[in-house]
Design a protein around this nucleic acid. Sequence first.
DNA 1: TGCATATATTTCGATTTCGTAGTAACTTCG
DNA 2: CGAAGTTACTACGAAATCGAAATATATGCA
Lengths: 224, 224
Amino acid sequence: MVSRVSAAMTRRPWRTGPSGPRPVAAAGPRYPVGMSEPDSVDRHIAHWSRELSDLDPQIEGIFTRMQMLVKVLRRTKDRWLAAGGLKHWEFQVLHHLVAAGPPYRATPSLLAEWLDTHPATMTNRLDRLEQSGYVDRVPDPGDRRRLLVALTPAGRAIWQERMDDGGLEEQALLAPLDPGDRELLDDLLRRMVRAAEADGPPLMPDWPSGSDTENRMSNRGTDG
Amino acid sequence: MVSRVSAAMTRRPWRTGPSGPRPVAAAGPRYPVGMSEPDSVDRHIAHWSRELSDLDPQIEGIFTRMQMLVKVLRRTKDRWLAAGGLKHWEFQVLHHLVAAGPPYRATPSLLAEWLDTHPATMTNRLDRLEQSGYVDRVPDPGDRRRLLVALTPAGRAIWQERMDDGGLEEQALLAPLDPGDRELLDDLLRRMVRAAEADGPPLMPDWPSGSDTENRMSNRGTDG
DNA sequence: TGCATATATTTCGATTTCGTAGTAACTTCG
DNA sequence: CGAAGTTACTACGAAATCGAAATATATGCA
């Protein structure tokens, strides 16, 4: 129904040669019975617990797995975007502008905040994005300190183009879970998010533009 | 039992003023019935689906939540480390050296790969880490091209210090889940990871050093 | 109104990271 | 053995990012 998971943790540009980790010995340690087939995270943790005993393998496992899954997704999207000649942050800017809804504008400061980057960096990036013709900078009539970054038709077009078939990896990653499993997973995660939000601000910008279908193509920061 | 979730998505250094997103209108859209209390991700997606209709809110929700959770964790750790005068990558290097097990050494190339960074960047970082006295560079007797980066007692000490009470945030995030929920969550995630690994290399380095209690204190890359 | 303070964006210099190439050492194979 | 190819690390210049200051505008309050 959906493409298989694209070669998961693919090589990074600077991975020079076969310097990577060697295959693990055939007869490894035992894992808790009743657990489904172990994955590389289990093996990892099993090894690690030799070095550090007071560590909860379950907690460890949960967060490591989330991190790994987020990482694969991010890398896959990066490659996918790069193939279309876009950098991740370029797509992100366009994406957030679309997410903002008509008239598809936002100030540089908000964009900087959404992309988790320094305002000066955003200035630089917007310069380049403007040169590429994907955005315009128009004055804000209501406040002459401000600018509004506006999505151009070209920007909208290239965003759309990359967006169309952008959700494949997510579906591939979720393939082993049936509808019931997915609902369960979503619910468990929601409970964690709500707990995190109980003590502080929302994890996502709670306003017209915060967006994130983003996640259908990229993640917002996660790593910044 | 455990500290509350530390003010979730805390301010970044460059967040200048109250320019952030404004509070959302009181009467929002409706969400699927039977769902537990909505979180900011639900609101986000509800908003987004106006702009882009052909999108599965569930898939969207699952990955967005993972991304957000990973992001909070990462930021909390960053702050925590910074308070102790360590940068994230500094801790990561020390952590991976410990994870490698006795005699706590690794080559620059492997470290670069583990931390998802360019080898030249690692050279630079190791210079600084060596100056701080946390690592030494010793020649590899077996291969005179190679160096071995060795953990010094000072390096081990500062790692230990930061490690001791480093697992609090994870526990706080998992607080709303009882033991059964956690097992379920871990299992669902494991199935996803295994699926991802079926088509490609393991998501984690499968060898003596790949480590990751890392996750107890920091995440390996995720954001690179 | 007038002045102090706050906000939005950009500029500029310093730092960090990256890509590429250089040097040394190892390996393969004739 | 010796030449060609590969791998490991680093040096160097280019590019991106950051922190702090500069500029212009807006807001608050006496």
